[in-house]
Structure formats: C-alpha cells, structure tokens
Design a binder for these strands. Structure first.
Length: 140
DNA sequence: GCCAACGTTGGC
DNA sequence: GCCAACGTTGGC
C-alpha cells in the first residue's frame, strides 16, 4: 500500500466537488508534468492519498483512494498524458495547513515542503501517520 | 499582485 | 547537449 498527495486549486477542482462524485470517483486529469504522471503510473487500486487545496486554504482537507489505475487522460489527444481515478473516502476533521506541516520537524522532508510545485507527490507511511494524527483522522 | 522556483522550449 | 528565454505554479 502506497500513499500519495493530490494537489488542486479549489477554484479549479475542490474537495466538495470531489465528494459529490461519491464512490464512482473521478479522473485526476489535466496533469501535464512528467514527474507527476510517473507517480500516477505507479499507483495501484486501493492506494490512499491526501487531497490538498493549494493557493486558497493551503491545507490537507480530505482522504482519497485510487479507484482506477493509470489510463489515457480523456481531456487530451496527446498520448503522453495519463491519469488515475480517485474517490473521496473521508474528511479530515481538522484540516492540516501548510503552516503546520512546515513547523513540524518530522515533516520537513515532505515533497510538499521541498518541491511545492509538484501536483502529485508520494507520501511516506510515517508522514501519512503523522498528518492523519494531526488532522484527527481515525486510522484503523 | 508580485516574484522566486521550477519546467519546457528552441536556437545554436 | 548546452543554456537562455519564456511560461506556469504557488506561497506570500
């Protein structure tokens, strides 16, 4: 099981919109970055991810799950770009802000801190646990 | 709204 | 294959 972080500007695609899609999920399309695409290719069904609001909010607001592995991005004819489908799983009761993450020495190595521009990122199991803890997410 | 950091493009 | 110019992202 791997962990990821999906970043989106709420104006473009928000957590609320993601939740409306329910269990069907929705394509995480529009990614035009090789690094991000490569991470999506590594994803497996059932992988968990954080949903992060950039620009507005700048906080982890939800938990998502990969429900379809990488396939061609339907928003372009360009064969280079692929995407996965993700579905909303749970809210983060206490959204974890970028500020909180930056101020926690245990999280200073996070990609979110070191390479803030990457829109799809890997998250380590330890980082996952810490952020779930900070956010009040109940983990089994 | 500004600007730093990063990625991509294209001329050589 | 290098690097300058340009475009985009995202924090502030």
């Amino acid at each position: 099981m791997a962990y990821w972080l999906f970043k989106s500007e709420p104006f473009k695609w928000s957590w609320e919109q993601q939740k409306e899609k329910g269990d069907t999920g929705e394509e995480w399309d529009g990614v035009r970055n090789y690094q991000a695409r490569n991470f999506m290719r590594e994803m497996k069904i059932g992988d968990q991810g954080f949903f992060y609001h950039s620009n507005e909010g700048k906080e982890v607001v939800g938990i998502v799950e990969v429900c379809a592995e990488a396939h061609p991005d339907s928003t372009t004819d360009d064969e280079r770009w692929e995407c996965v489908d993700i579905k909303a799983v749970a809210d983060v009761p206490n959204p974890v802000s970028l500020d909180t993450i930056k101020n926690d020495p245990r999280l200073e190595e996070m990609v979110l801190v070191k390479n803030s521009r990457l829109s799809v990122q890997p998250v380590t199991e330890e980082e996952w646990r810490i952020i779930c803890d900070l956010g009040g997410v109940k983990t089994p």
